[in-house]
């Protein structure tokens, strides 16, 4: 039996411990904000936080999260009011929006580590998250805007 906290709620799971967190979140908990994009740790669409650390949920077995605390996009801002979400809306960042959960969760981890990131910091941190619609320049701007606000 695996016990973990997801967005503050304690959950128990007695299925296959190899199941990636991505599918546990999406199919069993119906937290569909976390997206599948590649299943191999290549695109970042599935980024979540485990014990505050950014991970790619498609390559993270649920067994490895036993006793840990998982946070997903659904819990980023209670009323979509995280500094990043506000900056995202101000800059009209999303196009299709599919990659944006992964972008936001990655950006949130970056700002925790580097509250005032440079362009270089942003590009390094965000390079793992693909946006096929090409919203990168607005992502960069929104992260900078959020960093201003957060300080």
């Amino acid at each position: 039996m695996i016990t973990l906290k997801v967005n503050g709620v304690t959950r128990r799971f007695d299925g296959d411990p190899e199941m990636p967190l991505l599918w546990y979140l999406r199919d069993l908990l119906e937290l569909t904000g976390t997206k599948y994009g590649c299943g191999r740790g290549l695109c970042g669409s599935c980024t979540i936080h485990v014990n505050g650390v950014q991970v790619q949920s498609c390559v993270t077995a649920i067994g490895s999260a036993d006793g840990k605390s998982v946070a997903t996009i659904e819990a980023l801002g209670a009323n979509v009011d995280h500094a990043l979400q506000r900056a995202w809306m101000k800059n009209n960042v999303p196009q299709c929006g599919y990659c944006q959960s992964g972008q936001l969760m990655t950006a949130a981890a970056l700002l925790k580590e580097k509250p005032k990131p440079t362009d270089q910091d942003i590009d390094t941190a965000m390079a793992g998250v693909i946006c096929r619609c090409g919203t990168y320049q607005r992502i960069r701007q929104a992260i900078k805007d959020a960093a201003e606000v957060a300080l």
Binding site: T32, G33, T34, E74, V93, G97
Partner: peptide, 15 residues
Amino acid sequence: NLKELCSGRGVFGID
């Protein structure tokens, strides 16, 4: 649907 797209609440075909 901007707010949904910034909070993981948009419903795509896969969802």
